[in-house]
């Protein structure tokens, strides 16, 4: 389980997103409010700027250390502006079997693919699912998997559900691919008799839109072992939160709440300790956020099909 943060909106300094709040993502690495594990397994970000060379390609930064002592990250964050952004601190259980390294740091983005993905989740018993998934993952994508995480496989699986993973992808196409990938994972789990709670909170973006899920397979079916997940009884760590910035509130005839949305933030937990202005996303939901001529940034929170 990890902490993830994604942004879509007007240009903003990456520093403000990573450090600029009393419960910022960087602080969440070592002081998360809604989970009991620390997030010590690495840090990564992808940030898009339309003013940069090759604006379709993000600025990326991925290290297997925690961000709190990272002067390079701080210095870069103070210089880079972004209109879209996904960042992640990786939480792993305190276990020597865990593989901590650059190859397992989120967000994942294969060469030549416009979509990046980060996850706060854990597919229980993934080792038994991995090779079943091969039949659904395109060979050219399977060959790009470098790490050992379930997330990278889920990423390859979602891309495989697209008509052309290496071409432009729209938000609705991405949302559909996510839903089909979840169906596929459910089938594989059922076939393997895996029936243990497995959260799959995904965040995907290509710099122009943002898609996210708050989802869990077999919610409430704990593993019968000594793991973190077996002992966890409060499920705040699987929650997802959203907040928006709006413009022109005082000039809008329909009132402040109807103002054009200029930015949206999605996060595993609010960036402020007070939670003021943050809305919790219901379980089993899918968020689609994309530019909209009337609404600025249109955001829809959909209940995922049963």
């Amino acid at each position: 389980m990890c902490r993830v943060l994604a942004y879509l909106g007007g240009p903003v300094l990456v520093n403000d997103l990573l450090y600029g709040a009393d419960a910022s993502l960087v602080r969440q690495a070592v002081d998360p409010e809604l989970m009991s594990l620390l997030n010590l397994g690495g840090f990564g970000l992808a940030a898009w700027s339309p003013d940069s060379p090759s604006p379709g390609r993000p600025f990326t930064y991925r290290v297997s250390t925690i961000p709190n002592f990272d002067r390079n990250l701080r210095a870069l964050a103070q210089k880079v502006e972004a209109t879209a952004f996904v960042a992640h601190v990786r939480g792993v259980t305190y276990d020597e079997r865990q593989q901590v390294g650059g190859h397992n740091v989120h967000p994942f983005q294969f060469e030549g693919v416009s979509v990046a993905l980060a996850q706060n989740g854990d597919l229980s018993d993934f080792g038994r699912m991995r090779f079943d998934l091969l039949q659904y993952v395109r060979p050219e994508l399977a060959s790009m998997i470098e790490g050992t995480t379930d997330t990278e496989w889920v990423y390859a699986l979602i891309l495989s559900m697209l008509d052309d993973p290496f071409g432009p992808v729209g938000p609705e196409e991405a949302a559909g691919a996510v839903e089909r990938a979840l169906e596929c994972l459910r089938d594989v789990r059922e076939a393997r008799g895996i029936a243990v709670q497995s959260p799959v909170n995904l965040v995907l973006t290509d710099g122009r839109w943002l898609v996210a899920t708050r989802f869990a397979f077999d919610y409430g079916w704990y593993p019968e072992d000594e793991s973190f997940f077996a002992g966890e009884r409060e499920h705040d760590y699987t929650s997802l939160w959203i907040t928006s910035e709006r413009e022109g509130e005082d000039r809008d005839d329909r009132g402040a709440a109807e103002g054009r949305r200029s930015a949206v933030l999605v996060a595993s937990e609010p960036l402020s300790k007070s939670h003021a202005g943050w809305f919790e996303v219901p379980e089993y939901s899918l968020i689609v956020a994309a530019p909209d001529s009337e609404r600025g940034i249109g955001v829809e929170v959909r209940e995922l099909p049963w």
């Binding site: 089909r180 169906e183 089938d187 919790e280 996303v281 929170v301 209940e303 099909p305 049963w306």
Partner: peptide, 22 residues
């Protein structure tokens, strides 16, 4: 609690998106 409001899925017990996976 302040919750994001959702649009409701059309059905239950099956997916609108199932494509007949092998």
């Amino acid at each position: 609690r302040p919750m994001a409001s959702t649009t409701v899925a059309s059905g239950r017990g099956g997916s609108r998106f199932r494509r007949g996976l092998p």
